[in-house]
Write a protein that binds this DNA or RNA. Structure first.
Length: 573
DNA sequence: GCCGTTTTCGGCCCGACTGTTTTCAGTCG
């Protein structure tokens, strides 16, 4: 079983226990361990073999035993007993807004409802309103919620969510009385996908801003509206939340709304140790005296911490690192000197070589590699070795014209074929300045097959970078089922760089494996995979992932000087 | 169910908003 599959089992256990009415902290323990497994970056089965399961945070004796049972048998007796007690179809009810464990249990025990369909029928028939604590409004909210659930897609890729949120920010900034508006939530933490769009504002008249917000022309319905907080659903089915406080409280509000929830829980724990209580309003002591924070720095400082960059706020060790003064120095755009994965009209790009080169130069880069597709399987108008030679002549002419303003490399994005062979023979690869090997086809092969394909590329001395290693496409296509422990170990052994592909539809490596790779000392590449000049600006998404992965600038080959980069490439055959 | 330079038992974060209620429970982030 993979970590993700184990996590799903524990998530299911947590849902069922919660509906059953179990102790909330027991439920929380299962949820925490599910999240930890998802972001571990190494196979639990390996840790198990080394007898180190209980070294995983949140794994004690009971959960370690359950992990072992799952790894050995693929099943969990505890879950089976639970499913016999609580109908598992109730879990889908938890997806409905305003339906949590208490109400799911209520519908089940008092009305015999166990499925979404039965709940909808009961609501339409007006039977829900007769249940204790329910009324007409709750009933219609639930009906609306079920419809919204069907209408609404899953999490939005950051590449769609961010531009949409920025348009709202611009609009809100123009409202009267507004002093400041910023992104918060997972948007600000640069998570690859985003659920709701979270925004924060500073204003002396919060209620007026809330009123303007819920009357924006794109609003489909208002989910909640109070003095300091409102929540709406747009016509396209996206949910937005806006918090507002006067400017003297903006720091604690922004920190609170940025999250993550887990990070905030840890901060409140730190506050408690000082006999203080932390909320979005600030820090209050036992006498009820409240200290306000206009900026985040002073809030973190009051808790005895340096300011923690939003991308790290996931409770993945950032609090401990901050307490020790050991936060990483994170990547910034100005560290980057090269773009090593671009396409032109020679294959499936939209711009000529010169247009791409000029665009890279205009963005202050010192190196660009042109890496058009190889001919394999006829995809993307890939280049045969003959056309590759013709392209080389054109690149040579451009080198003459651009002189030492910009280093232009001829590379290729070489297909890793379904049989594991690379698309060009070694003698063709040897002629190139830089070689990226990527998976595009047969991504659903078995773990052993697809891992062998990637290893074949990693071990080839001409291959410098593995492009978008998992092949995932957000939000729907899962990446290949790679044996990551082996892939990472071999990349380290051969010094082959793994790419963080900055295209928001990919963001691959993801933050978890980028972090693991960096910890191991594997070189990383950070590229946009640009097919148009404007795509070069997508680099900010990749920077977000690198920062979320705690990757420090020297670990990214794109931060190296042209001389160092060339030296590295030449040393690789 | 986990965890421990205040604890191996007793803790485990906090407030806004809504709806159904006459003071609060449920949900959410």
């Amino acid at each position: 079983m993979t970590n993700e599959e184990l996590a799903a089992v524990f998530e299911r256990v947590a849902d069922l226990l919660e509906i059953k009415g179990e102790n909330a902290y027991r439920v929380l323990a299962y949820r925490r361990v599910a999240e930890t497994l998802r972001t571990l970056g190494q196979e639990v089965s390996l840790l198990r073999a080394q007898g180190r399961l209980q070294e995983i945070p949140g794994v004690g004796k009971a959960i370690a035993e359950k992990i072992e049972e799952l790894l050995d048998t693929g099943e969990l007796g505890f879950l089976k007993r639970l499913e016999a007690e609580v109908p598992p179809s109730l879990i889908e009810l938890l997806q409905i807004p305003d339906v949590g464990p208490k109400r799911a249990a209520l519908f089940w025990k008092q009305a015999g409802i166990t499925t979404l369909e039965a709940l909808e029928e009961a609501a339409r028939a007006g039977r829900l309103r007769t249940l204790p604590g329910m009324g007409e409004k709750s009933e219609s909210r639930i009906l609306e919620g079920i419809e919204a659930l069907r209408r609404r897609s899953h999490r939005l890729p950051l590449g769609m969510a961010r531009p949409m949120a920025l348009r709202w920010v611009e609009w809100l900034r123009q409202q009267p009385g507004v002093i400041r508006v910023e992104l918060a939530g997972s948007l600000r933490r640069w998570r690859a996908t985003v659920g709701d769009l979270d925004l924060v504002a500073a204003s002396h008249q919060p209620e007026a801003l809330m009123d303007a917000f819920v009357h924006h022309p794109d609003v489909y319905r208002v989910l909640a509206q109070g003095e300091n907080k409102a929540s709406i659903e747009t016509k396209s089915g996206t949910r937005l939340q806006l918090w507002c406080q006067p400017p003297e409280k903006f720091g604690s509000l922004w920190q609170y709304a940025t999250g993550s929830k887990e990070h905030n829980v840890r901060l409140r724990g730190l506050a408690q140790k000082q006999n203080l209580s932390l909320s979005e309003h600030g820090l209050s002591d036992e006498t009820g005296h409240e200290q306000h924070f206009a900026d985040e720095e002073s809030l973190y400082q009051a808790l005895g911490l340096p300011w923690i960059p939003p991308e790290l706020r996931e409770d993945r060790g950032e609090i401990e690192a901050a307490l020790k003064g050991q936060l990483p120095e994170l990547l910034r755009k100005e560290h980057l000197q090269s773009e090593l994965h671009t396409h032109s009209t020679w294959s499936d790009g939209a711009a000529t070589l010169e247009e791409m080169i000029a665009a890279a130069y205009a963005r202050g880069l010192r190196v660009i590699a042109i890496t058009d597709h190889s001919a394999g399987l006829g995809i993307a108008n890939g280049l045969t070795p003959e056309r590759l030679h013709q392209q080389r002549a054109e690149i040579e002419a451009l080198r003459q014209r651009w002189g030492d303003k910009l280093l232009i490399l001829q590379g290729a994005e070489v297909e890793i074929r379904a049989d594991g062979q690379l698309d060009y023979p070694d003698e063709v690869l040897a002629e190139l300045d830089l070689v990226i090997a990527s998976l595009h086809v047969s991504l659903r092969q078995s773990r052993s097959e697809i891992t062998r394909r990637v290893l074949n590329a990693i071990c080839n001395p001409h291959v410098d970078i593995i492009g978008h290693p998992s092949g995932r496409l957000l939000p729907n296509r899962e990446g290949a089922d790679l044996d990551w422990d082996t892939v990472l170990a071999e990349a380290l052994k051969h010094g082959t760089a793994l790419e963080i592909n900055a295209n928001p539809a990919r963001l691959d490596l993801d933050d978890v494996y980028a972090r693991r790779a960096a910890e191991m000392g594997i070189p990383l590449a950070l590229n946009t995979d640009a097919h148009t000049p404007g795509d070069l600006d997508l680099i900010e998404y990749g920077i977000g992932i690198a920062r979320r992965g705690w990757v420090e600038p020297p670990q990214i080959i794109n931060t190296w000087s042209p001389e160092r980069l060339l030296g590295w490439l030449r040393g690789r055959g």
